[in-house]
Amino acid sequence: MDAQQREKEFMALVESYKRVIYKVCYMYATDADHLNDLYQEVVINLWKAFPHFRGESKVSTWVYKIGLNTCVSFFRKSKGRPEVVPITVDLENLASEESHTAQIRELYGMINRLNSMERALILLWLEEKSYQEIAEITGFSRNNVAVKLMRIKEKLKTMSNS
């Protein structure tokens, strides 16, 4: 495949998965500028990995894995940031096609208070990924995913009751 064809295929992939990339970045962003930086980092890392994608997993699994790894690494590198950071991006602008209710805003606020790996797991669960797909993306065992998600859901319930 020539460079022009590879670039064309990559651009089609990014266009197809831009909402997935955006949602992953959103879970780790502290503001709109940070969101844009994360998005660019994920796209760069996807581009670097694109020639090596062998199709051994679904494309969506590969995109999520690279996106989450990029965001978690970026999050860990920023040592000066507090663990709990309020989300300042306007949800209506995040997904103009979807109407967000006050409950969804509250849920995103609670998710933002989770640690980075808990955010990744709950994001994948909210995206209706199977436990097996989540395991493939995160590197946890399927059983470990189930246990962690159960604990995260309990944590979110506790947060919503307080």
Rank of each mutant, 00 (worst) to 15 (best):
Asp2Gln: 09
Ala3Phe: 09
Gln4Trp: 13
Glu7Ser: 06
Glu7Met: 13
Glu9Gln: 06
Glu9Phe: 04
Glu9Ser: 10
Leu13Ser: 08
Leu13Gly: 03
Val14Met: 05
Glu15Ser: 11
Tyr17Lys: 05
Lys18Asp: 09
Lys18Gln: 09
Ile21Tyr: 02
Ile21Arg: 09
Ile21Met: 04
Tyr22Val: 08
Lys23Pro: 00
Lys23Gly: 04
Cys25Asp: 01
Cys25Pro: 02
Tyr26Trp: 02
Tyr28Leu: 04
Ala29Asp: 02
Thr30Val: 11
Ala32Trp: 11
Asp33Tyr: 15
His34Trp: 00
Asn36Gly: 07
Asn36Cys: 15
Asp37Trp: 09
Leu38Trp: 04
Tyr39Arg: 11
Tyr39Gly: 06
Tyr39Asp: 12
Glu41Ala: 08
Glu41Met: 06
Ile44Lys: 09
Asn45Ile: 02
Leu46Ala: 11
Trp47Arg: 14
Trp47Ile: 01
Lys48Val: 11
Arg54Trp: 01
Glu56Thr: 05
Ser57Phe: 03
Lys58Ala: 12
Thr61His: 00
Val63Asn: 00
Tyr64Pro: 00
Ile66Lys: 05
Leu68Ile: 15
Asn69Ile: 12
Thr70Ala: 00
Cys71Phe: 04
Val72Gln: 03
Val72Ile: 15
Phe74Val: 10
Phe75His: 15
Phe75Met: 06
Arg76Lys: 08
Arg76Gln: 07
Lys77Glu: 11
Arg81Pro: 00
Ile87Ala: 11
Val89His: 06
Asp90Tyr: 03
Asp90Ala: 06
Leu94Pro: 05
Ala95Val: 13
His100Thr: 11
Ala102Ser: 13
Gln103Val: 06
Arg105Trp: 01
Gly109Cys: 12
Asn112Pro: 01
Asn112Asp: 13
Ala120His: 02
Leu121Thr: 06
Leu124Gly: 07
Lys129Ala: 10
Ser130Asn: 09
Ile134Trp: 00
Ile134Arg: 02
Ala135Arg: 03
Glu136Trp: 07
Thr138Trp: 00
Gly139Ala: 08
Phe140Tyr: 12
Arg142Glu: 13
Arg142Cys: 04
Asn143Asp: 07
Val145Pro: 03
Val145Ile: 02
Val147Gln: 09
Lys148Leu: 08
Met150Asp: 15
Met150Arg: 15
Arg151Ser: 13
Ile152Cys: 07
Leu156Gly: 03
Leu156His: 04
Leu156Met: 03
Leu156Ala: 05
Thr158Leu: 08
Thr158Cys: 08
Ser160Phe: 12
Ser162Cys: 07
Ser162Gln: 08
